[in-house]
Design a binder for these strands. Structure first.
Lengths: 235, 235
DNA sequence: CATATAAGGTTATCAGACAACCTTACAATG
DNA sequence: CATTGTAAGGTTGTCTGATAACCTTATATG
């Protein structure tokens, strides 16, 4: 039997921060507007100033407000706020597949862009990642790290920071989920196939052929999906 | 002349949190490990417990640690941490284009998935967004909101939460950047073209034709890029 | 007019205390 | 012996009040 943790009333500062955050994101407080003072909020909400301070600290951390000592706290401009996606464990098969599905078009596009834009340094990093995967023995934790490094290297070769960061995040999550779920179940053979596909992709990038690079990445990811027993439509 | 703000030593709690965050991300502290107590850290760092608490609150907010009252603070498992990308304003043309370039494959894929998976409710939301754009007068702030709503509705129709959230974030940033940069410069004609393209996309989705939906989204985004004077390779 | 200076308000930090909660050890109970 | 109750100690959560650092504005001051 598993009950999970019951939170009696879920962290006071977080609730207050959530309330204010909703006020901001739903437009009841507009960028530039000044929040009430900490003293006022504490009185108004019936909590101590510590709690209010922690709530505001959270908002600042989420990029929703800026504080200036001696002046006050102000709602930030929307475009300066970080992109942030909560991560729910990928425990269930559904969300794992969904994230994988998101990854596919990103990586395909990245492969094409990498073929067009890679520098000599980029290619060298790709080759290094490739070597460290071939060198290793099996599909161990090390192998997963090497695989991740390869995909990161390709993403970096796009010259587009966003691809780099997004793919880095997503691929890492997927790797971790695989690691946890089925590291033991996979076989050496898979590594061989993976390496083959990596090499094909690497060569397409090296010859600056975006069409072939996209195709190679597509084949690779579809192959990976199949090996993971995922069915992806639309391809 | 613009100096920007000089912070004598940039927010004590943030520096402490940054130090601990580095310890975690660079592997000096491993998942599951317990942090020193707040009292200890305060003594060790020569600051008050308030500062330490705020630092730990920030780490908790970033998903790097979990705190349990009466027990302590612990480094979280890596896969539970949120995806987070700092946003640097899209001020320069380069990063604006880069983000747009990221958006393209995501939205194309989303269109295809929407064609396959949309429900009646999804389609209704798409139509509503479409109507509110046609109804409005010009390419005003309202028009931008309606455009954003349309793209969100399509992303939601994929049935894949990740597409929804990612595209929502990215499209919003791009909208905001456009709003700031060139709202004044765009003309009514553009709205007409945009609506035409939206309708074509909507019909392709409604007829559950992923190939046509992808093509329609591709045309739409490439058209938008052209109107924004962006050149995107690889298509 | 330009520059100091003073005053008041606000956030940042400090200090100490108590409350709420968890873990552990140990006694009590059956 | 196994289970339950109880007490103790440790740790985070919250409260209170005070001081420091900082900003803005108004008011002298030359």
């Amino acid at each position: 039997m598993e009950f999970g943790h019951i939170r009696r009333s879920e962290h006071l500062p977080a609730r207050i921060a959530g309330q204010i955050a909703r006020d901001i994101t739903e437009g009841r407080m507009r960028p530039g507007e000044k929040l009430p003072t900490e003293h006022f909020l504490a009185k108004a909400l019936g909590v101590s100033r510590s709690v209010v301070r922690e709530a505001i600290a959270q908002l600042r951390n989420e990029g929703l407000v800026e504080t200036r000592q001696g002046v006050g706290a102000f709602v930030t401009e929307a475009h300066a706020r970080p992109i942030r996606i909560e991560q729910d464990d990928l425990a269930d098969r559904q969300s794992f597949r969904d994230l994988f599905q998101l990854r596919v078009p990103l990586e395909i596009e990245a492969a094409g862009l990498a073929a067009l834009h890679h520098t000599a340094d980029d290619l060298q990093r790709i080759d290094e990642a490739l070597a460290s995967m071939s060198g290793g023995e099996k599909w161990t934790a090390e192998g997963i790290v090497a695989d991740l490094a390869f995909h990161r290297a390709v993403a970096a070769a796009t010259g587009n920071e966003y691809f780099s960061v997004f793919i880095g995040f997503i691929a890492e999550r997927i790797s971790l989920a695989i690691d946890a779920a089925r590291a033991a179940a996979v076989l050496e053979e898979i590594v061989e196939v993976t390496i083959e596909e990596h090499v094909a992709l690497r060569d397409a990038i090296a010859s600056r052929d975006p069409k072939r690079a996209r195709e190679a990445m597509k084949m690779h990811l579809l192959g990976a999906a199949k090996r993971l027993d995922l069915t992806l439509e639309s391809y």
